[in-house]
């Protein structure tokens, strides 16, 4: 949500005037973040592409309904994409593909091979941990850390009170802590727990 509001508003006006280059510029501004959002929630490239396309088709067709006094354009588009992702959760397709087929996903674009390898390991660990979260908690983590949304913006996108957004991030932390923690730290925690309780 870090786009310049003036630039975005100008592009939206271009689109509303029926200029196709405006739609192209709007897509270039928003597509990477919307795609990352969809991928973070669905953990599957094909599904993320389909849902992102659905979200943009809806957004382009209903651009005249967008009210800039209520929310930023990206918040609006995030809300659309999130609702499409939720529809897919309900159909249960994402779980079957991501969980059962265990697709081998290509690495992101980084510079050095060492850094790429380290990032890929870290990313794989995070993706594994994210897939273990419930959809609601995963939404909170993806919006918070993947897109740097404030709790207020998260509440707007998710459609819940701000306190709920905060508590979801906290619950996600609790669950990620147990998944991401190295085995040695788990053992230490267990020992500490025994020691503290005795």
């Amino acid at each position: 949500m870090n786009q310049q509001p003036d630039e975005m508003a100008e592009v939206i006006h271009q689109c509303l005037a029926g200029d196709q280059s405006g739609f192209e510029a709007l897509y270039a501004l928003c597509a990477p973040s919307i795609y990352r959002l969809c991928y973070g929630l669905l953990m599957n490239r094909q599904d993320a592409e389909d849902i992102m396309q659905e979200a943009f088709v809806y957004g382009f067709k209903n651009l005249h309904r967008y009210d800039e006094s209520r929310a930023s354009f990206k918040t609006w588009l995030y809300t659309i994409a999130l609702s499409r992702c939720r529809n897919l959760y309900r159909r249960g397709r994402w779980w079957n593909i991501a969980g059962l087929l265990s697709l081998d996903l290509p690495a992101p674009h980084t510079d050095a091979p060492e850094a790429r390898l380290a990032d890929r390991d870290a990313k794989a660990a995070i993706e594994h941990a994210l897939s273990a979260l419930s959809p609601r908690l995963r939404e909170a983590v993806v919006l918070r850390y993947g897109h740097n949304l404030t709790f207020r913006e998260m509440a707007d996108v998710i459609g819940c009170p701000q306190k709920t957004a905060e508590s979801r991030v906290r619950l996600a932390h609790e669950q990620l802590r147990s998944v991401l923690q190295p085995a040695s730290e788990n053992l230490l925690d267990a020992l500490l727990g025994v020691e503290l309780s005795s």
Binding site: K123, I126, R144, Y145
Partner: peptide, 14 residues
């Protein structure tokens, strides 16, 4: 999470 999450899904969109 702050370091890795921006990399998750960092592919070329359609």
């Amino acid at each position: 999470l702050n370091r890795v999450m921006p990399l998750v899904g960092n592919y070329r969109p359609p």
